[in-house]
Every structure is written in C-alpha cells, then in structure tokens.
Design a protein around this nucleic acid. Structure first.
Lengths: 126, 126
DNA sequence: TGCTTATATCGACAACTGTCAATCAATGGG
DNA sequence: CCCATTGATTGACAGTTGTCGATATAAGCA
C-alpha cells in the first residue's frame, strides 16, 4: 500500500503542506463552538462570575438582574443560554430559581481551548 | 460615611445576597468576551487547529482554504478576526502570508475561563 | 379567592455575523 | 512590460443575536 503521503507533484511552487492534518473535524469544532458562543458575551460572563462568587456557589435571578443593569427577561434569556450550553444548572426552590455552575464544565471548555481538540465532554447535553 | 452595606431592610423575604460581590466588571467582561467571540466559531477553531498542527506552528492561507470548504475571501476574513483578537500572528513572506499562534494567547484565554476574571492579558491588542 | 412577587415566554426590532461573488493590490516570472 | 498567482478588500444578503415591553405562569400570602 502507498503509505508515503504524496507531498506534492513537483510542478507547482506549493507553499502548502500535505492534507490529512490532525485537525479538528467539523463536528468537534461545532460542539466546542456551541459552548464558546455561550461564553462569548460580556453579560453572560458576568452572570457566571456572580454565580461562582455567590453563597454556596449559587445565585437566584434577583441576585443577577440588578448588578448587570439589564431587564429581567434579558437576564432570564441569558441564563437559559448558559443552561442549554451545559454551563449552568437550574433548580427551582419555592418561588425562586437558583442557578449554579455545572461542575467541570468551565474546566472542560478551558481544556478544549488549550488543546484545541475535544477532550472529555463533561456537560454533554442534548 | 455609611461603610456598612445595607443588606436588607427586613420587610421583604429577600432571597438575595448583599451586593458588592467580587464579580467581573464591565470592562473586564468585554475584553474577555472579545477574545471568546473570536474563538466561538467552528471554522475559526479549525483554522487555529490547522495552524497549531502546521509545520513550524505556522500555515499559509492556501493551506487553510481547502480543508475548510470555504471561499478564500471568507477564510481571509476569519483570519483577520483571529489576528485582531490577538490569537494569530501574520507574517508575509514573498507572495505568501503565513499565520502562527501568538504565544500564550490561548493559554490566557483558557485561564480566564477557569478563573472567570482577567488575569494577565497577553495579546493585549489595540 | 384574589393579590403580590418571582421568573419564564413571546413578539418585535435593531445590530451584528458569516458567507459569497467581484474586484483590488502586491509579488514574481516570462 | 505584461501576465499569472496569492491574498486582502468591498458590497450585498441571509441568518443569528441581544435587548426590550408585554404577557403568561406559578408560588405564596391575606
């Protein structure tokens, strides 16, 4: 079998390296981008930082609406995005909804950036 | 002056913790989000992974256009976004443009996610 | 039961983003 | 000097996103 990869034909200058690189495939890239998209918003980053700093690692919506200077529906929308990305966990207790970080989710995202390849998907969602 | 923060008045149920949390401020969040926005696209993640895996840690545009199945102007556009986010470095040698990772940039982004606070801005851009 | 408070959902809209076709600029070869 | 090639820029356009006001849902209280 032809194990040696055909680097180039020789009839072109060819600045390019051969194909077959160990690159992220489309599915991995898309999964990784979905989490990063959820993180790529200043207000959502602030929401996460408040939740992380909150008592017991959790915070309710009323904790989150005021410091961000955003309307309540907007905050609720951002929280939903973070939950769907597998970064936040939602728990309703009585009248209030408490949000907390999904353990390992931020670490996984961080690792994915470092290696630029999907490692262990922690918050594997839908 | 009134140094003691007014936690609550006592006439409300108050699910909320006092304000003054160690949260990300608006400027930090925006700076962090700018880098993450650049990372939050499947094709840009793949570009970075190709550059990282490339010979000498660099790759030219013709290396990047084909495996992504995107038009050349689109790839050029994505590369510009990555450069402006401080993630890629561009060097023109002769007819070809070579792109390489900015050292430490991915590590900084990774750390920022872990701590959810800006640590040491490495690729401090414009 | 009816009121109040907390949170989610809906509909609308402006702003931004990813993509392409066409074109421009720069480099190197005949 | 003209041409071929590499890559950037421009303009257009569809799709997505962030935000708000209005409304719905749900829980607790009088």
């Amino acid at each position: 079998m032809n194990t040696a990869p055909v680097v180039e034909d020789g009839n072109k200058p060819s600045c390019c390296t051969p194909s077959g690189l160990p690159m992220l495939n489309a599915a991995e890239a898309q999964a990784m981008a979905r989490v990063l998209k959820a993180l790529a918003d200043p207000n959502r980053l602030r929401l996460l930082s408040i939740v992380k700093a909150g008592d017991g690692g959790e915070a309710c919506v009323c904790d989150l609406t005021e410091p961000l200077d955003l309307g309540q529906p907007t905050v609720s929308h951002h929280l939903k995005i973070l939950v769907e990305a597998g970064l936040l966990h939602r728990e309703k207790r009585g009248t209030w909804a408490y949000y907390s970080l999904v353990p390992g989710a931020l670490e996984a995202a961080s690792q994915n950036i470092l290696g630029l390849q999907v490692s262990t998907p922690v918050g594997s969602g839908s």
